[in-house]
Design a protein around this nucleic acid. Sequence first.
DNA 1: GGCCAGGACACCA
DNA 2: TGGTGTCATGGC
Length: 224
Amino acid sequence: MTTKQNMELIYQRLLDRYGPQHWWPADEPFEVIIGAILTQSTAWGNVEKAIGNLKKAGALNPIAIRELPVDDLAILIRPSGYYNAKARKLKAFVERLSESYGGSLEKLFALDTPNLREELLSIYGIGQETADSVILYAAQKPMFVIDAYTHRITNRLGLHPDKNSYAALQALFMDNLPGDEKLFNEYHALLVCLGKNACRKHPVCHECCLDTICGFRADQGNLV
DNA sequence: GGCCAGGACACCA
DNA sequence: TGGTGTCATGGC
C-alpha cells in the first residue's frame, strides 16, 4: 500500500468512527485566532471560559483588545493559564493587525499563503502550529496543522518521517493528500479527536485505541 | 496530590 | 540544531 493510500485510509477510518468534527469551534475568524493562541498547551475547556469572559466584557474584537490594559486583559483570560504571557501574545497580534493591515483580517488574509505564514510567524507568540491553525481555520486556506497528537499518532502508526521535525511531518500529509482546505480541516480535527479519546494510561495506545477503534497495525508499518 | 492539556520563547551548549 | 526551564489554570 502506498503512503498516499495509507494517509487517505486513516482519514476514512477516523471519519467513519467519529464523524465530521465541524472545526473550528468559533463564530468568526477573529475568535478562531484568539482561541488558537489561548489553547497553546491548554485544554480547550479552559479556553472556552476565557473566551466567554472576553465576550461578556465586550472585548472579543481587535479594537477592544488593543485598548485594554495588558493586566486587565490577563485577568479576563486567566482560566486559560499562562495568562500573563498570553495577554502579551494577544496584544502583539492586534497591534500588528492594526499597524500593518488597518485592523482588517481580510487585508491580512489577502496575502498569498507563504507570505501570510511568514507574517504570522514574525508576530510574538505565534509559532508554526498557531500560524497554520490561523491559515487553515481562520483564513480557510489549505495548510495542514501539526500538533502533539499528530506527532504521537504518526509515531504509533510507524508513519513518522525520519527527520523528526514539524516541516517533515507536515510534508507527509501535504505531499500525500489533495490540497483541499476542507479535507485538511477535518483530518486534523479527527486526529485531535482520536488523541483525546485515547486512554490516559497509554496516550494513543496501539492496543486499546488504534487497533480496536481504527484497525491500524503499526507493527507492520502499514494499515490493514 | 500528581498529571497533563489542540505551544512558544529564551537561553544554553 | 537540540535540549531544558518557564509560563499557570482547571479537570480528572
